[in-house]
Structure formats: C-alpha cells, structure tokens
Write a protein that binds this DNA or RNA. Structure first.
Lengths: 105, 105
DNA sequence: CGGCATCCACATGGATACTG
DNA sequence: CAGTATCCATGTGGATGCCG
C-alpha cells in the first residue's frame, strides 16, 4: 500500500470517523438504546461542553453514523440514533475494547 | 459506562494507541514483514518528515506495539518489528478496513 | 542513517455567555 | 433545551537544519 492508496483506504476512513475525544463514548451510549435525547447524552458525559458534544454529533451525522431527529417543541427535543451502518461497528468495537483491556498498564 | 470508567476503558486505550496520522500506515507496513528498517519505512511514506515518523514510532514503542532493534554501525541501522500483542490487532484492523471500504463516499 | 532542535501553522477541545 | 458565538489553551504535525 502506497501513500496515495492510503489516503482513501478503508482503515484510514474508519479511524477518522472514530477520531474525536468523545466519539467512542457517544457510540457506547447510543448502542445501548434505540434513540437518546441530547440532554440525556450530555448528562452521561458531564465533562464535555454542549458545544463540543454538538460538534462531535454533527460530525457523526455528516459521516452517516447517526440520524438526528428533531421534535418541534419549545423547549426543543432532539434525539439521536445510530444508523444501521454504525451498528455494524458494534462487534468490531467490542473486539478493540477487549484487546485494550488485555494490555498491561 | 460512566465517565470515570470510560477514561481507562479498553476501547479508549485502543483508539489512543491507534491515534496519530501515520500510525495505521506504520502498522500496515510492519504487518507485511518481520522487521523493517527505518529508512525503508520512511521511503514508503515520503510525505512525512523523519521527525514525525520518529515520534510516532517512539509512541508505538512506549505502548509496547513495536520493538526497536539497533545495530551499532556507522551509518546507524535501526529496525522495527511488531510485538505479539500488536499482531493480535491484525484481524481487527482488517475488519475496520473492510467496514470503511463499504462506506459510500 | 537515524534521529533531535527549532520554529511554525492549524486543528481540536475547553470555558463561558447568549438565544430562539 | 439545544444549540451558537466568542475567546483561548494545548497538541499535533509540517519544514528545515544539524549532528554523531
């Protein structure tokens, strides 16, 4: 594999989608349920600002990993759910999780 | 999974090890052979400076993903090879690669 | 050859306040 | 409630040069 191939290779694309400090935790939260409301997601990761959480969700949406579902209320209600393609990542992330837990530290 | 658990969870650790612009390409090069010499590795990714390549290799070494083998010559010869633990990543990265290639783009 | 030193550009994420 | 706007600190990687 040379550099030009690498730029667009599947591995590079996958890791780019997963890159971001809070992405794995977002995935883990969304795997557990069908839909999760923004505020609930945020309460599960209180160390992140809403700005940053919004950014990461927007990136995941652009990458077709999540679907954004807005209910037109006041106050607003917005839910996020994983796409089918994202759910395929489940078993792979489980393996990474397992492998990482076996590391000495 | 709450935030405190997440900080040290296996998934976060795995992705941290893989994070870095050139890490996947380093892995792919090293998977193909037993040992690879520094200069050969560098020639396979000519868009990266030697400084950056060195940094990424050092991080991988600190994470016990590669072993650094130095031959005391002049000019110096340094080889890198994957550890057994790193080789376990092979099948997982293959799945990520496959999944990434199936994405519409 | 295999680094390291230096300097720099840009991206990422944090803190806070504000708004429809 | 679900964002945006603004400002800022830090980190990551690129460019170049030097050195044993």
């Amino acid at each position: 594999m040379n550099f030009e191939e690498f730029k667009n290779c599947g591995l590079r694309r996958s890791l780019d989608i997963l890159s971001g400090k809070w992405k794995p935790l977002i995935f883990q939260n969304l795997f557990e349920k069908d839909e999760v409301r923004f505020i609930e997601l945020w309460r599960n990761m209180p160390r992140v600002s809403k700005k940053v959480l919004s950014e990461q969700l927007k990136q995941l949406e652009e990458n077709h990993m999540i679907q954004r579902i807005e209910v037109y209320n006041f106050p607003p209600e917005v839910y996020y759910k994983l796409t089918d393609k994202a759910r395929e990542l489940g078993p792979i992330l489980d393996q990474l999780h397992q492998w990482g837990n076996e590391l000495a530290h």
